[in-house]
Amino acid sequence: MLETKNLVKKYGGKTALNDISFPIEQGKTYLLLGPNGSGKTTWMKTAASLSKPTSGSVLWNGTPVGVESRKEISYMPTESFFYPWMIVADVGDYCTDFFEDFDLDQFRDLIRDMELPADAKVKSLSSGMNAKLRLAAAISRKARVYLLDEPLNGIDLVARDAVMKAVISVMSPDTAVVISSHLVEEVESFVSTAIFLRNGKLLEITDTEDLRTRTGKSLADRYRELMQ
């Protein structure tokens, strides 16, 4: 459904993504793995059509991502991006205004479950609270693809369970979820495929259950092997 083809992205003189190709298929949950600067965020921003490729493309049902794909691809950025004048409830209203697939009731349930006060100023939220708000906004859409960039960053142990349950709840046979996280152990029980990146290059695509059955290794083991 979401096809990356020979994607290259350069910033100034630096190559962030170096000719990578891979498919994202529905019904699967992907984990993007790689050290900082390996190109995970750059790929997500390109797939979310925020960033334009230097060459190559990301295709959504055969056409380059853009205004149309934004209707069906939901993206949770790794940094705060809301307008500073907003309160938590404003974020729900904003998404309702712009995304036809946004479920406001679900958003309200999620922020309640994650103990985010609806009248809190977005500016005053801690980084963990802000991450929860970004996640709630992204997964309250009935999207076809969810791109979640470091959804566990800044989220304390107690809240992690709620966050991961929220992520699992959007998985279905006709959606795809792509998560980037360096907390491999936390997420490896529920991802189906791992995509290893290093220095903007694609190293390997691995089916997680297959890896365990074939080699008796965990994703974390394989990650350490590949990055040495």
Binding site: L50, E68, K71, F81, Y83, F99
Partner: peptide, 13 residues
């Protein structure tokens, strides 16, 4: 800045 996402994530050209 990151505030750009507010506009450019929406399905608007």
């Amino acid at each position: 800045t990151n505030q750009s996402y507010m506009l450019f994530l929406t399905p608007r050209n």
